[in-house]
Design a protein around this nucleic acid. Structure first.
Length: 354
DNA sequence: TAGGCCATCTGGTCCT
DNA sequence: AGGACCAGATGGCCTA
């Protein structure tokens, strides 16, 4: 059901190659259809969708000629004649110029979007959870970035400990449940039913799916239940010196002054951990020490063909992934060690969905 | 099959 | 005129 974009004029490839964009686009070299040759290439004309194939050379000229005639209103009545300068006739030469311009514009747009994606990738790399193989979606990356900035600001301004549940809460605020799970998988802290209860109370959300107090619940319909519950305690990481959390960090929606307003649904703290970032570039020593076998399941929720699921390792980035507290690069007063293992569970919530 | 996410094309608008 | 930016539309791929 592919529509050929440029209809009857068969010189597109020549034109295109003369513009040099074929060489720019790797997909073309891979034998795939060029971007110009796939997709719908639809033109919105007065609410109609018309493909370029439909608007072949002759057709386009006809279109022009029709437009030069009287316009017919939506109800069939004659609309007043168009004022202003008459449209130029769509001659062959004009069509060629138009097409060349369009092709160049498409190439620019592609490259612009690639630049945007590169920037997004760079952003992903400085997020608390980063994996080459398990990318956050664009929107989740932006949300997490916002939360991360906000959380770090809180650390600086209020002296709140990044080890606290509040920090993780802030990171997870407004994220989708799968992303929250992923973040939670990276930032495992101990469970805190009390805190979760408070979240539910304070924020008026459904909390942990109405199961507040349960340290293990996967109430989200439509989402797979992560196998967190089957984890052995020895596989879970915990921050050294982590204390039972005291819920003193209200949600950004209404509970904390000086926090950015957030207009999305609340996401309660899901899982709490002391691991802050997943990196693939792990030393064997670190990877062995910090491997959390279930993290891959979190990441799996985000996987798609663009973000291939990690396989053997399970962990985003595979078993080689190591955990790194990236906040340290911001010279935060952190002293994070991962030599203390404490059983913990992840808690998910129905509130986590966007 | 529906929904999420993505890449791409496209026309419009603004700016230089 | 041309480039940058934007938003709408569309189809592809993947997962639940």
């Amino acid at each position: 059901m592919m529509t050929k974009p440029f209809g009857k004029s068969g010189d597109v490839s020549e034109l295109v190659s003369s513009l040099g964009w074929l060489e720019e686009d790797g997909s073309s070299q891979d034998g795939e259809e060029s971007p110009e040759m796939r997709g719908h290439h639809g033109l919105t004309v007065g609410g109609r969708i018309r493909s370029c194939a439909e608007l072949g050379s002759e057709d386009m000229e006809e279109e022009e000629e029709e437009e030069d005639d009287e316009e017919i209103g939506p109800n069939g009545e004659n609309a007043p004649k168009r004022r202003g300068p008459k449209k130029k006739k769509m001659t062959k030469a004009r069509q060629e110029r138009f097409r060349a311009r369009r092709i160049k514009a498409n190439a620019r747009e592609r490259s612009r979007m690639h630049g945007l994606n590169d920037a997004l990738d760079n952003l992903r790399r400085v997020m608390p959870c980063y994996s080459k193989t398990q990318k956050l979606s664009k929107i989740e990356t932006l949300r997490l970035a916002r939360n991360y900035i906000w959380a770090l600001s809180e650390v600086l301004e209020s002296g709140q400990s990044p080890e606290s549940h509040g920090f993780v809460e802030m990171l997870c605020k407004g994220l989708s449940q799968p992303t929250s799970n992923l973040v939670a998988g990276c930032l495992q802290l101990g469970p805190s039913p009390v805190m979760l209860n408070k979240v539910e109370d304070k924020c008026g959300g459904s909390g942990v799916g109405g199961q507040a107090g349960h340290t293990l619940s996967y109430p989200s319909p439509g989402l797979p239940s992560p196998p967190y519950g089957s984890l052995e305690a020895s596989h879970l990481l915990h921050m050294k010196g982590f204390k039972a959390p005291v819920y003193d960090n209200p949600s950004p929606n209404e509970c904390s002054s000086g926090t950015p307003p957030y207009d999305g649904p609340l996401t309660p703290p899901l899982s709490i951990s002391g691991n802050f970032a997943l990196k693939q570039e792990a030393s064997p020593h670190e990877s062995e020490r910090n491997y959390t076998p279930h993290s891959g399941h979190h990441a799996h929720y985000l996987s798609s063909h663009h973000y291939p699921s990690s396989t053997a390792g399970g962990l985003p980035g595979g078993p080689q992934g190591h955990l790194l507290f990236q906040a340290s690069r911001y010279e935060l007063p952190l002293d994070v060690a991962f030599d203390s293992f404490t059983p913990s569970h992840l808690v998910t919530s129905q509130m986590g969905t966007i």
